[in-house]
Amino acid sequence: MPWDPKVEKAISASISESDCGVDRVSPRGVDEEVLEHVSGLRRYALLLIGDPDEADDLVQETLVRVIAQTRSWKQVRDLRAYLFTTLHNVFVDGHRRRRVRPSEVPIETVIADLLAPPRQQDWVELRDLVAALQLLPKEQREVVLLVGLEGMSYLEAANVLQVPLGTVMSRLSRGREALRRLMTHGSAARLRVVK
């Protein structure tokens, strides 16, 4: 994983701040909470991008940005929404800058390696689902994952993606329907997936 100088700078700044701050030791509960959030960000990014390395870079850049945003912390009310919103913004910025290259290892294989071996029938369904997700337009994939994978409410998803609630609903509807068609009809349905 590339080590960005920004990472080191953010960490050192944070550590020096915490040395003179009131909370020199973070409670264990916060560590667990952070692990939970980072796990969520990482699996969301993995399924969103489909490439483990790219996904980890995205999460890392997100964390660096969040830690470095000193002023914004005063307005943070919902930490999870804040993290996912930042990840979304980093993803959109990065999407503009670079062309996502195809992963060397198919995402279905990555997921299979990560998950405990399911039954054959279940595995086929999971593989089809993961593969179909990668075929969805990015906007639909985001909503389907935020609601279905991360269990966010429609309003939370709308806030994270900074779009109206109605947009989330329509993207969710089209995304799920596209997934259904892809999983039912296989590759023949790919041409019918539209934004």
Binding site: I11, E17, V25, D31, E33, V34, Q60, I67
Partner: peptide, 11 residues
Amino acid sequence: LQRALASRIAR
């Protein structure tokens, strides 16, 4: 990064 984030949250 996780440690830094935890510290940030606590503060």
